[in-house]
């Protein structure tokens, strides 16, 4: 008689500063599959985890933003290669959320391709968004895009494609981020974090939290060391609350919009988290 093998369940933790801690609060919440069955427990992050995430993101910012764009592009492309290697796992996780096989496969493929698309932007943004300005005087005058700093991201419910579509544009230009994953479907986010952790991406560039958006987002929105917010996954009420809180230190806020994550993303998300720096210098002997 054969005994059925007992599966080893995966513990889903947070991803902060390159490490995988549990929530400092010790809390977790139940994630169900598409049929309402138990899937896993996810960490339920607290405001202190938000704080730790921001600290890690800030710490990583100088180094990450100082990398050459080519290097950032290479690192992101390497992440895509590793995602490709985990295709099956992501497909399975998406199916757990209730997607059919084809839909899940398509979303994974789309997500990897999206990541590759953004990877290529690293060393092109300055050429496309910058400008040499013809001023009326003996001055060299150049405008270049620069990362704004730490971006707080409220990820949408599209658990993988939506997630990569908000992370990649934030970090490709040199920002670091603290991401609140989809509340009902956070597991692919943690799997993505495992990919990031084993890639060349420096710890702290992406910090992933799972938990209740309504609880976590306002802490990100009011944190004075956060420079920008992507509210992609915020509800209307949460958006208003976060936008108000973000006003305190004049965060750049990207409001949620009707998003078809499979559509061409354009430059909007990248531009939202870029500053334009203009440098003047006299031209003379």
């Amino acid at each position: 008689m054969s005994t059925e093998r007992l599966t080893v369940r995966k513990t889903y933790k947070l991803y902060i500063g390159g490490a995988f801690p549990r929530s400092e609060s010790g809390r977790s919440y139940v994630i169900n599959d598409g049929q309402g069955g138990f899937l896993a427990n996810a960490s339920r992050a607290s405001r202190k985890d938000v704080r730790d995430g921001v600290t890690a993101a800030r710490k990583a910012f100088p180094g990450w933003s100082a990398r050459t764009p080519y290097n950032r592009g290479q690192i992101l492309y390497r992440v895509a290669e590793m995602l490709e290697g985990r295709r099956a796992q992501f497909v399975a996780e998406l199916r757990d959320t209730g997607l059919g096989k084809n839909a899940a496969t398509e979303e994974v493929d789309e997500a990897i391709d999206r990541w590759v698309w953004y990877a290529g932007w690293a060393d092109k943004l300055a050429a496309v968004l910058g400008s040499a300005n013809p001023v009326a005087g003996p001055f060299f005058n150049l405008s270049t895009p620069e990362p704004t700093g730490v971006v707080g991201v409220i990820a949408p419910d599209s658990p993988l494609l939506g997630l990569v579509s908000v992370i990649a544009p934030a970090i490709i230009s040199g920002n670091t981020c603290v991401v609140v994953a989809s509340e009902p479907a956070p597991l692919p986010a943690i799997t993505l974090a495992e990919v990031l952790a084993t890639s060349d991406l420096p710890g702290g560039v992406v910090n992933l939290l799972t938990g209740h958006r309504a609880e976590l987002a306002p802490w990100l929105a009011s944190h004075l060391d956060v420079n920008a917010l992507d509210l992609a996954g915020a509800s209307a009420d949460l958006t208003v609350e976060c936008e108000r809180a973000a006003a305190e230190n004049l965060k750049r806020v990207l409001r949620p919009a009707e998003s078809d994550w499979t559509a061409d993303p354009g430059l909007t998300r990248m531009k939202a988290f870029l500053e334009t720096k203009t440098i003047w210098h006299p031209i003379g002997l």
């Binding site: 005087g137 003996p138 006299p282 003379g284």
Partner: peptide, 8 residues
């Protein structure tokens, strides 16, 4: 001496 500044 910066030329532009001096001339300005």
């Amino acid at each position: 001496v910066d030329q532009v500044g001096a001339e300005e």
